[in-house]
Amino acid sequence: MQLTRRDAILMGAGAALVVGLPLRAFAVTGDEAIAAFTGGAEVSEGDIKLTAPEIAENGNTVPIEVSSDSAAEIMVLAMGNPEPAVATFKFGPLAASRSASTRIRLAGTQDVVAIAKLEDGSFVKASSTVKVTIGGCGG
């Protein structure tokens, strides 16, 4: 079969799907944002939960939830976005739980990270890989 440019484009789209190629990663900027939030303190696993879909139907609107028992603040980052910062939730005295949900934009398949500053001043982290599918028709 002789390959034309159109074939190559069409097949390329198919191949990218199979491999699940991530878009460009800007991990450095994400790490910098984490360092700014933690002041360089150690970040361990612990009291923080991040709920995100394994596969997002559209990167424009991805529902996520963060929750913790003892967080004072939770920062969410999309490590593969051109600007990794997503949101920072600060809980006040009348927060009934240290949890919140929102809908976010993901520029492609990547890791979403939640870092909580706990009441004792320590930092914990949770991470979740979200696969972002490309659309079918004019997607």
């Binding site: 789209a13 198919g14 799907l17 139907e57 559209n58 424009n60 609107t61 599918t133 490309i134 659309g135 079918g136 028709c137 997607g139």
Partner: peptide, 24 residues
């Protein structure tokens, strides 16, 4: 079946107008 990374529906229009996540 899939068309690229999306699935094809039967194309009914009972849901219109549609809020699309794509163009919000």
């Amino acid at each position: 079946r899939m068309i690229r990374a999306d699935h094809l529906s039967q194309g009914h229009i009972n849901g219109f107008p549609v809020y699309r996540l794509k163009n919000t």
